[in-house]
């Protein structure tokens, strides 16, 4: 291992006591509270290499997403990671998509290469630095959304995307948000809060104008500064369940992401049960990567256990 920063992080994590990473702590409680006595460490920071012509950026996990995006914007690029005050490593370990997922892609697909510290304190690398790669098993996919229970992310190579020339938010009342979603091609987000529909259009100026004209045939849309405020809790439904009152019952105030299935709700989502076979497989994965259970103890990626 040639990078002293990563070596230092490995030493910091060590190989014995219960340990977890604290990033921006924006989603820190996901998966349950850490067991008492768990030592918290911070991942290293710093943007290492942005290659605009490769559409990749190599960045240390402790870097804030906001700083990363500021740096990328100088070359007209961005990533799919949500910008909400947290770190790059945190965004990946949590795996939740940005509001603009329709246009910017999923977080899980943006991670090309990951370097993490294993339960026994070693630096492990998965994936590869290129935009396309099927070399070996897909460790990066496994790390996204693993809540720090399989390895502690130290450094990553993330896919970047060009920032489109034009991006606007529009809103209208009394339109069918599902019809809006089905009609549009360049929508990065279609949100519905029970009354108003919010649309984000992104793309070439001419394309946005064309889509705006299309929207005008569906309702009286007006330009707004941004999306509506989002309630605290996050639900995961299928796109079809959004139009089903039974599935939406208990959400309280909500903002639903049409065509995606994410619902931002004032109340937490009732837990669904998970099959025994999936629980068994999940436990085998956890045990394989963290035999002693020292990584982020107390957190469970499966909230729906019976």
């Amino acid at each position: 291992m040639s990078d002293p920063t990563l070596a230092a992080f490995c030493d910091l994590v060590g190989s014995h006591d219960p340990v977890a990473v604290a990033g921006g702590k924006t989603r820190f409680g996901l998966g349950g509270s850490l067991r008492e006595g768990t030592r918290l460490v911070s991942a290293p920071e710093g943007i290492l290499r942005h290659l605009p012509e490769e559409m990749t950026v190599q960045v240390r996990a402790g870097t804030s997403v906001r700083d990363l995006h500021e740096a990328l914007a100088e070359k007209g690029q961005r990533t799919a990671l949500p910008e909400r005050g947290g770190s790059v490593g945190g965004a990946l370990a949590v795996g939740e998509n940005d509001l603009h997922v329709l246009g910017r892609g999923r977080v899980r697909e943006s991670l090309l290469q990951v370097r993490y510290v294993s339960a026994d304190g070693r630096l492990v690398s998965g994936g590869g630095p290129t935009v396309k790669n099927v070399t070996g098993f897909d460790i990066p996919r496994l790390m996204v959304g693993s809540l720090g229970t399989l390895g502690l992310i130290a450094e990553v190579m993330v896919r970047t995307n060009p920032i489109p020339p034009r991006s606007i938010w529009l809103t209208a009342r009394d339109v069918d948000p599902f019809a809006v979603r089905d009609s549009l091609v360049a929508a990065s987000a279609v949100l519905f809060d029970g009354r108003g529909t919010y649309v984000q259009l992104e793309g070439q100026v001419g394309d946005v104008v064309a889509e705006q004209a299309l929207l005008a045939t569906l309702g009286r849309f007006e330009e707004v500064a941004g999306p509506p405020p989002l309630p605290l809790h996050r639900w995961s439904l299928t796109p079809a369940q959004l139009s089903d009152e039974v599935c939406m019952a208990g959400a309280g105030d909500f903002v639903a992401s049409i065509g995606v299935g994410t619902v931002f709700a004032s109340l937490p989502q009732p837990r669904a049960t998970v099959s025994p076979a999936l629980i068994a497989l999940t436990e085998r994965v956890k045990t394989a990567f963290d035999p002693t259970g020292r990584l982020s103890p107390g957190r469970d990626v499966l909230q729906g256990r019976p």
Partner: peptide
């Protein structure tokens, strides 16, 4: 659904 819970074992 939008973000199935658990590890991305699909991936």
């Amino acid at each position: 659904d939008a973000e199935p819970e658990g590890y991305d074992l699909r991936g």
